[in-house]
Design a binder for these strands. Sequence first.
DNA 1: AAGCAGAGCAACCGCGGGGGC
DNA 2: GGCCCCCGCGGTTGCTCTGCT
Length: 278
Amino acid sequence: MGRQPCCDKVGLKKGPWTAEEDQKLVGFLLTHGHCCWRIVPKLAGLLRCGKSCRLRWTNYLRPDLKRGLLSDDEERLVIELHAQLGNRWSKIAARLPGRTDNEIKNHWNTHIKKKLRKMGIDPVTHQPLDPPRPPVGEQDVALQAPAPPEQQGTPPHQELQGGDVLREAEENEEEEVPLIEPHEITSPPPAAAAEATSNCSVSPASVLSPSCSSSASAASAVSGVDVAEWPEPMYLFGMDGIMDVGWDGLVSGAGVDVDPFDHYYHDAGFDDQDVWII
DNA sequence: AAGCAGAGCAACCGCGGGGGC
DNA sequence: GGCCCCCGCGGTTGCTCTGCT
């Protein structure tokens, strides 16, 4: 029993929107609003399906949209919220006024993922990419018996270990995006949070915040997520110096050719080959 | 200058949820 | 309770731009 298409596709236009179409849609929606997207294109005189109109409006034409790259604060907030909510882009977008889920999703996939990987953090799990290596025997077992992805009960990056296998996990990571439930995020009890940073697990967002356990960042204030509740990953492996540098200085390298994270990698005990699996 | 590869982003597709009947 | 319709979401695709060789 096939599902009906969202609209009668015969005779309907697809692909990029023209300025004229935008004008028609904006003009119609600003004067009439929309009660039902299905009839909007008809009333607006557009040869588009309602779904396409809704997407165009929500992602591009809405007057309250911000344009341009996400600010550092917005990026931090996205990372925090992603650690908490997973790939629920609409929920994340709801916390960033003027940003759309599509925009955040694209920004995550094209920018933030890379940044996190470069920092040695798995963008999916928000855990370090390079887990402690098992003894040789265990590593062999892991290498010999990689279950097909569809048969694995847990994400590959948690099952597989060792250099090649880690790389394989990196490749599979694009296919499986396990949701991180709030209870999976290790956070100390409120009383302990302020004093026991060693119990924290990994959250890249906290790396980007000026402070993990004291005052909440502006982003956290917006998100409603108390910074004190967030784990402090990099403190675990000596990357707390990042705080003094700032996101932009680290990632852009401020015109320096040398990778700005290099000394953090080495201080944290990473091998170069461990880090540059990108 | 031309060709190629990779990055970035807008738009599409298919599925699931919610509400009305 | 079941069916249908509509909307919204998340994943994916494909086009365009940019930088490199």
